[in-house]
Protein backbone atom coordinates (compact mmCIF):
# COMPACT_ATOMS: atom_id res chain seq x y z
CA UNK A 1 0.00 0.00 0.00
CA UNK A 2 1.05 3.62 -0.56
CA UNK A 3 1.72 5.70 2.55
CA UNK A 4 2.53 9.42 2.75
CA UNK A 5 4.93 10.39 5.55
CA UNK A 6 5.55 14.05 6.50
CA UNK A 7 9.31 14.56 6.35
CA UNK A 8 11.90 17.25 6.98
CA UNK A 9 14.15 15.90 4.22
CA UNK A 10 14.12 14.00 0.95
CA UNK A 11 15.42 10.59 2.01
CA UNK A 12 14.16 7.66 4.07
CA UNK A 13 16.75 8.52 6.73
CA UNK A 14 15.39 12.08 7.08
CA UNK A 15 13.65 13.05 10.31
CA UNK A 16 9.90 12.96 10.12
CA UNK A 17 8.25 16.37 10.15
CA UNK A 18 5.90 16.50 13.15
CA UNK A 19 3.70 18.97 11.26
CA UNK A 20 1.24 17.81 8.64
CA UNK A 21 0.03 20.93 6.78
CA UNK A 22 3.34 22.72 7.06
CA UNK A 23 5.63 19.73 6.60
CA UNK A 24 8.63 20.40 4.36
CA UNK A 25 8.10 17.29 2.23
CA UNK A 26 5.90 14.28 1.86
CA UNK A 27 7.57 10.99 1.05
CA UNK A 28 5.16 8.57 -0.58
CA UNK A 29 6.34 5.04 0.14
CA UNK A 30 5.11 1.80 -1.37
CA UNK A 31 5.24 -0.49 1.64
CA UNK A 32 5.34 -3.59 -0.55
CA UNK A 33 8.33 -2.61 -2.70
CA UNK A 34 10.06 0.00 -0.52
CA UNK A 35 10.08 2.40 -3.50
CA UNK A 36 9.37 6.01 -2.69
CA UNK A 37 8.75 9.40 -4.31
CA UNK A 38 9.43 12.86 -2.86
CA UNK A 39 6.84 15.65 -2.95
CA UNK A 40 7.72 19.19 -2.04
CA UNK A 41 5.23 20.91 0.28
CA UNK A 42 6.88 24.38 0.35
CA UNK A 43 3.81 26.04 -1.13
CA UNK A 44 1.70 24.95 1.83
CA UNK A 45 4.53 25.54 4.28
CA UNK A 46 4.30 29.23 3.36
CA UNK A 47 0.52 29.43 2.93
CA UNK A 48 -1.32 32.06 4.94
CA UNK A 49 -4.08 29.66 5.84
CA UNK A 50 -5.50 26.35 4.71
CA UNK A 51 -2.12 24.58 4.75
CA UNK A 52 -3.58 21.45 6.31
CA UNK A 53 -6.48 21.37 3.85
CA UNK A 54 -4.24 21.74 0.80
CA UNK A 55 -1.72 19.21 2.13
CA UNK A 56 -4.60 16.78 2.64
CA UNK A 57 -5.81 17.40 -0.91
CA UNK A 58 -2.31 16.81 -2.27
CA UNK A 59 -1.77 13.50 -0.50
CA UNK A 60 -5.25 12.36 -1.54
CA UNK A 61 -4.39 13.22 -5.14
CA UNK A 62 -1.25 11.08 -4.78
CA UNK A 63 -3.55 8.09 -4.23
CA UNK A 64 -2.18 7.11 -0.85
CA UNK A 65 -4.18 4.94 1.52
CA UNK A 66 -2.62 6.17 4.74
CA UNK A 67 -0.74 9.11 6.21
CA UNK A 68 1.89 8.98 8.95
CA UNK A 69 2.54 12.30 10.62
CA UNK A 70 3.14 13.87 14.03
CA UNK A 71 0.06 16.02 14.40
CA UNK A 72 -3.14 16.68 12.52
CA UNK A 73 -5.65 19.48 13.03
CA UNK A 74 -9.43 19.42 12.58
CA UNK A 75 -9.60 20.74 9.02
CA UNK A 76 -6.94 18.41 7.62
CA UNK A 77 -8.54 15.56 9.57
CA UNK A 78 -11.94 16.29 8.00
CA UNK A 79 -10.42 16.37 4.51
CA UNK A 80 -8.45 13.13 4.96
CA UNK A 81 -11.49 11.37 6.45
CA UNK A 82 -13.68 12.51 3.55
CA UNK A 83 -11.31 10.64 1.25
CA UNK A 84 -11.11 7.60 3.57
CA UNK A 85 -7.40 8.06 4.24
CA UNK A 86 -6.18 6.42 7.45
CA UNK A 87 -4.14 8.66 9.73
CA UNK A 88 -1.38 7.24 11.93
CA UNK A 89 0.44 9.35 14.47
CA UNK A 90 4.15 8.92 15.09
CA UNK A 91 5.97 11.26 17.43
CA UNK A 92 9.54 11.15 16.10
CA UNK A 93 12.22 9.21 14.32
CA UNK A 94 13.25 8.85 10.70
CA UNK A 95 10.79 8.25 7.89
CA UNK A 96 12.04 4.67 7.62
CA UNK A 97 11.59 4.05 11.34
CA UNK A 98 8.03 5.40 11.10
CA UNK A 99 7.20 3.05 8.25
CA UNK A 100 8.78 0.12 10.13
CA UNK A 101 6.70 0.92 13.20
CA UNK A 102 3.60 1.16 11.03
CA UNK A 103 4.28 -2.25 9.48
CA UNK A 104 4.91 -3.75 12.92
CA UNK A 105 1.48 -2.46 13.95
CA UNK A 106 2.96 -0.13 16.56
CA UNK A 107 1.27 3.08 15.39
CA UNK A 108 -2.20 4.00 16.50
CA UNK A 109 -4.90 5.15 14.12
CA UNK A 110 -5.92 8.73 14.92
CA UNK A 111 -9.64 8.65 15.72
CA UNK A 112 -9.79 12.44 15.71
CA UNK A 113 -7.68 15.55 15.26
CA UNK A 114 -4.99 15.77 17.94
CA UNK A 115 -4.44 19.52 17.51
CA UNK A 116 -6.69 22.57 17.66
CA UNK A 117 -7.25 24.56 14.47
CA UNK A 118 -4.77 27.33 13.77
CA UNK A 119 -6.05 30.77 12.88
CA UNK A 120 -4.36 33.47 10.89
Amino acid sequence: MKIAVSSQGMSLDSEMDPRFGRAKYFLVIDSDTGQFTVHDNTQNLNAMQGAGIQAAKNVVDLNVEAVITGNVGPKAYAALKAADIKIYLCEKGSVKQAVDKFQAGQLSNAGQANQEGHWV
Binding site: A47, Q49, G50, A56, K57, V60, A79, L80, A83
Partner: peptide, 23 residues
Protein backbone atom coordinates in the same frame (compact mmCIF):
# COMPACT_ATOMS: atom_id res chain seq x y z
CA UNK B 1 -14.38 25.70 -6.98
CA UNK B 2 -11.33 24.71 -4.95
CA UNK B 3 -8.93 26.08 -7.56
CA UNK B 4 -10.41 29.58 -7.50
CA UNK B 5 -10.68 29.75 -3.69
CA UNK B 6 -7.63 31.57 -2.29
CA UNK B 7 -8.54 30.64 1.26
CA UNK B 8 -9.01 26.86 1.00
CA UNK B 9 -12.58 27.36 2.14
CA UNK B 10 -13.81 24.87 -0.43
CA UNK B 11 -11.80 21.95 -1.76
CA UNK B 12 -12.19 18.76 -3.75
CA UNK B 13 -10.64 15.84 -1.91
CA UNK B 14 -10.98 12.46 -3.52
CA UNK B 15 -14.60 12.17 -4.57
CA UNK B 16 -16.01 14.81 -2.31
CA UNK B 17 -16.17 18.61 -2.14
CA UNK B 18 -15.79 19.92 1.40
CA UNK B 19 -16.54 23.49 2.47
CA UNK B 20 -15.04 25.20 5.53
CA UNK B 21 -17.49 28.06 6.25
CA UNK B 22 -15.23 29.65 8.88
CA UNK B 23 -12.51 30.24 6.23
Amino acid sequence: CGEICQFSAIVLVGRKVIAYPEL
